[in-house]
Design a protein around this nucleic acid. Structure first.
Lengths: 210, 210, 210, 210
DNA sequence: GATGAATGAGAATTCATTCAT
DNA sequence: GATGAATGAATTCTCATTCAT
């Protein structure tokens, strides 16, 4: 089955080489700032795994061996940090959509596979799903990013399946993704709960009664 | 469709008529305390609606017009308060199970209706679903209460449907309820998200391929 | 060795039959009030043993099976309660002074025995010694009572010993009692610490170099 | 008579010159933090004098003109703060032991002088003696520090005196220090009570009857 | 640019004491 | 007289965020 492709960073490790803005030669100082940002992202990823995405800023700074203010400089908002940490995986996920559509037997099948990818991603991110649906101010950026990037992909798959007459047409991508996200909340801390199985049910439920 | 019957307190209002059982047993003095407890429950319900079930104790006290310690006297633990606030509705929900099983066309149908009841309840309780799945110490009592009361009902319906060959037999009541609960998280604050529809999908997904 | 005589209540049990103010026939209601006061004193004594004399008022009320206000009615101040609880033993101690002086070989010997009595009393009263030296407002009554009752007795013994040329004349009763009281603080909770032995040293130290 | 040597800070004033060891080791930035820590220690010392070592954290912060969290940063535990405040004096006291042994006429004499030092220290520290004997959790560090540092010194003096046949051999350093400590409780707030005199008695009482 | 010290608002919880019934 | 419910002050501790160095 599809995995988060080229990266293989199963949810913890190094992330992000920051948009390849190869562009104009960055001023010298950028070198260590860049290194710093990288360190920060790795540290954040690690802390997120153990303490969740709402972990105290201080913990992340400590892990990275930098001062807290450094985090604020690079990522004014917690959402910015979260986005940066997961950007690669989100991108991979987004890119996987069309590929799956092309390679799967049916659109509904592709949809199921793609959603599995999304679930695999979320389930391993302690607290991400929860914050993804939080309405606390300051997370709009996060919502926006995830939605902007993934919703179109999901919508595409839904349309295809609907067009093929495989699924009910009355559900939209936003709602589906929100539902899937919700089903992933707390999935990592409860051995009696298997988010994947429930999501499978949800996708199965989309099927039109043949 | 079934509603929370006689009560009709759609998630905010007065709760708890606490021993309407006129009985002599209760000491007289309770008169004002009784009134106060009631006030407290109403205030809590109201605050829960706007600020979620994790609202500061102080806010609830203020809303009720009492001192904080009064809350602690009546409800030593936040879980106690939450349980008290929602007890009636939980009971109603639990009692509705067997009735639905008897009155519905098929067990799967009964299951769907019952789950709808549960969703109707949760969706209006800002933050309840979230706290229900929280693993923070201090909420065990809450989990226990909900689970003890509702899981058996759900299990009963699942068994019936499975026995009738209507649904897949590989899902248990705990997981289903958790899933449904999760789908309700944040449902009240997002107009684009309809938990009922998604839960419907989930239940539909249980169906065995004819 | 001398004990707290007739009483034999080694620090816990029932205390106080409240000044036998046999006087004029007390109004009827007094009967249960009297009983109540007695219950209260027993309860207080018991709680003092386990939780110290600074135990929460509520605990004492609970133990006595009465409301907190009842305590306040009978004993407006914590000091009043403490005094009432220990009155008998303090009286016994006070009365033992002259008797010891008469029955002992020398005044210094009598002093030692009497101080032992005082120590036996204090050591078993969790926290009494501490509160006895506390300067918190509200304990003056307590200090006053203890001092008024016991200091003269101690002074008498000191004088006799000084007059007999057995001890240094430059220490007064107040200071000695305070010292002894202090040595008793916390004695019951520390197995490595024996207040009696230290007090013995102190008394020994009074001796004039022969 | 011996005093707390070079310091002469009779119980209130400036404490702690914290690494006067110019060394390169300490990072530059500490400049203001250092000043702050010093301010904090001075403030704490002052507040301790008036309100005792159990004074509310907030009061200390206010006195120092800093936020409460600043205290927590520097001294996570109240015990840490107390230790820091008194460290110098404790050290001086500890160091004085051997010196006194060498310079005094007899070991018993040295013991008396050393104990006087200890008393001088304690008597001026409102509440220190009380907390020193408290069994509340959170003060172990404090007990440990004081005991670790001072008990061996006291033990040494006791042994020497015992070896010289000057004193009774049946008292150990822990008990003696505890007793002396107790005698100092509340000594500063009671003009009729002179802890020094009583301690003197205690030490005199150790003497073997010639 | 980086640092990490300082800030101060917030939330929980406990008890002595008063007061309506 | 008795009750025990209500009060509300007091205290601790934690973090996100800012700012002087």
């Amino acid at each position: 089955m599809f995995r988060f492709g080229k990266l293989g960073d199963g949810g913890s490790g190094a992330v992000n080489d920051r948009d390849g803005d190869a562009g104009r030669a960055a001023p010298r100082k950028r070198a260590d700032a860049r290194r710093n940002e990288r360190t920060l992202l790795d540290a954040a990823a690690a802390v997120f795994v153990t303490s969740g995405v709402e972990a105290p800023v201080r913990d992340i700074a400590a892990r990275a061996g930098v001062g807290v203010a450094t985090i604020y400089r690079h990522f004014p908002t917690r959402a910015d940090l979260i986005i940066a940490v997961y950007r690669h995986q989100v991108e991979s996920c987004a890119e996987a959509g069309p590929a799956l559509l092309a390679s799967s037997a049916t659109p509904h099948d592709a949809l199921g596979r793609w959603v599995n990818l999304f679930v695999d991603f979320l389930v391993t991110k302690h607290g991400l799903a929860a914050v993804l649906r939080s309405d606390e101010a300051g997370f709009e950026a996060l919502h926006t990013y995830f939605l902007d990037r993934l919703m179109p992909v999901c919508a595409r798959l839904l349309e295809a399946a609907a067009a093929a007459g495989e699924i009910r047409p009355d559900i939209d991508a936003y709602e589906l993704m929100r539902g899937v996200g919700n089903l992933c909340i707390g999935a990592d801390s409860d051995p009696r709960y298997d988010a994947r199985r429930l999501v499978e049910l949800l996708i199965a439920g989309l099927r039109l009664p043949r």
